[in-house]
Amino acid sequence: MAASPASSATETSPDNSAAPAVQIRHLNYFFGTGELRKQVLFDINLDLPRGQIVIMTGPSGSGKTTLLTLIGALRTVHAGSLQVLGQELMGLSSRKLVGVRRNIGFIFQAHNLFESLTAAQNVEMAVELQPQFHAKRTQATEILGQLGLDNRVDYKPESLSGGQKQRVAIARALVNQPPLILADEPTAALDKKSGRDVVTLMQKLAKEDNRTILMVTHDNRILDVADRIINLVDGYIESDETLDTFNTTHDPKNLDQQMFIL
C-alpha cells in the first residue's frame, strides 16, 4: 500500500506569478451559526504584492489568526473575495483547498514537528508533496544548513533546543520554495536571541527569492524586518502603513525604547 499524499482531485494549483500574492476584497467572516453567530472579520480589503514582508499586529482576539487561516486555505471563505497566488478561494471545494496549501509555507507558533522523525525527515515530509522528490535528502540538508543546523540534520526534535526546533519547522515551510509564507507568532516560544535569528533568516530567504511573507506577531522587537505593518483591531484593518510611518505614528520614542534598547 503506497501512502501517496496526492489524489487526483487535489493537485497542486499552479501559481499565477503575475498576480499579487494575496488580494482580498470585502471579506467578512463569521464563527458559529444562529444566535451564536459572531462576526470576527469585517470588510477586509488587502493586497500583498510579491516580495513583501508584512507584519500583522493587533490585540488578542482581533482576528489575526482567523485571517491568516483564511489566506492559508485552511478555512472556507463565506463572503467576499479572497485570491491567493491568483486563485480565487471563495467557493473552492475543500479538496481543491488542499492543493492551494501546497504553494504556501506555514510556520506555526508551536513547531509541530513529528517527534518520531529526524530534523531531515521532518523537512523531507514537505518535499514528498512534490511530484518529484528523489533529491529530498539533499534539499532537506541544504536548507537545514542555510538555517545553521548542518550538524543537527539527523537529530530528533527531543534533542534540539526550542530555537533549533523552530528553525527545523521553518526549513520545512521553506524547502519547497513556496511563493507565500504565513507565520503565526513564530518567535513566541523562543528566547530573544533565537527569535531574532529566526526572523533574520526568514527575511534573508524571502528577500533572496522574492517571496511574500505575512507574519502575525506581538513581538515589537522584530518589527524592523517588515516592509509594511498592518494593525487589526476588532476585525477591522485599523491601519496599514510602511515601517517608517508606523514608527512615527506609534510614538517613536516609546517604540525605540522597546526595540533598540534590548
Binding site: T10, L74, V98, R101, N112, A126
Partner: peptide, 12 residues
C-alpha cells in the same frame, strides 16, 4: 497537531 500540520502542508 502533527497530523493537522501535515494537512495544512497539503497532505490529503
Amino acid at each position: 497537531k502533527e497530523y493537522a500540520t501535515l494537512k495544512a502542508m497539503g497532505y490529503s
